[in-house]
Amino acid sequence: MINQLTQTFTLTPAQQAAVNALMPFTRDTWESYAAHDIRDLIGVQLRNFQNGKCCFCGLLYDETGRGEIEHIAPKKARPNEYPEFSFSPQNLAMACQLCNSSTMKGQYNSIDIHNANYGNCTFKIVHPYLHNHALHYRWNHGLLRVVITGITNEAKESIRLFKLAEEHRTTARAKQKNQERLVTLYNLPQNTIDRIKRALTFRN
Rank of each mutant, 00 (worst) to 15 (best):
S102F: 07
I72V: 15
L46S: 03
C99Q: 08
L92S: 10
H131L: 15
S88G: 07
A134E: 15
G119T: 12
T152N: 11
N100K: 08
A34S: 11
D37Q: 04
A95G: 15
L98E: 13
C55P: 01
K124I: 02
L144K: 13
N115K: 08
S110G: 14
S110W: 07
A174N: 04
L164F: 02
N153W: 00
A155R: 03
K156V: 00
K76R: 15
R145Q: 15
H114V: 15
K53S: 01
P128Q: 09
A77W: 06
C121Y: 03
V147P: 04
G106H: 05
L144F: 11
I151W: 07
R173S: 01
W139F: 15
G43A: 07
A174R: 01
L92Q: 10
Y61E: 01
Q176Y: 00
C99E: 05
V126I: 13
M104P: 06
H71K: 10
V147I: 15
T103R: 11
N120L: 11
K76E: 03
P89H: 14
S86M: 04
C121P: 02
N48I: 11
S32T: 08
Y82N: 04
H136T: 06
I148Y: 04
L135D: 15
C54Y: 06
F85R: 03
E167K: 10
C55D: 01
E154T: 00
K156T: 01
A165K: 06
P79Q: 14
N120Y: 05
Y82C: 05
F87T: 04
T122N: 07
Q107H: 12
Q179T: 06
E81I: 03
D112P: 02
S86E: 04
Q179C: 04
R39A: 01
E68M: 12
D112W: 08
F49I: 14
I159E: 00
K156E: 05
R160G: 01
C99W: 08
H136Y: 12
E63A: 02
T170C: 05
L59C: 09
C55A: 13
R47M: 10
E68W: 05
S86Y: 04
D62K: 05
L130S: 10
N51L: 06
E68D: 12
G43Y: 02
Y82S: 08
Y118S: 06
P74L: 11
Y33R: 12
E63C: 06
T64A: 11
H136E: 14
Q50K: 08
Q176W: 00
R169L: 04
T152R: 09
H71W: 02
T171P: 00
A95P: 09
S32F: 01
N100Y: 02
T103W: 02
H36C: 07
E167H: 06
F87K: 10
H127P: 08
N153L: 02
E166Q: 08
S158Y: 01
Q176F: 00
A174K: 01
G150V: 03
V126H: 12
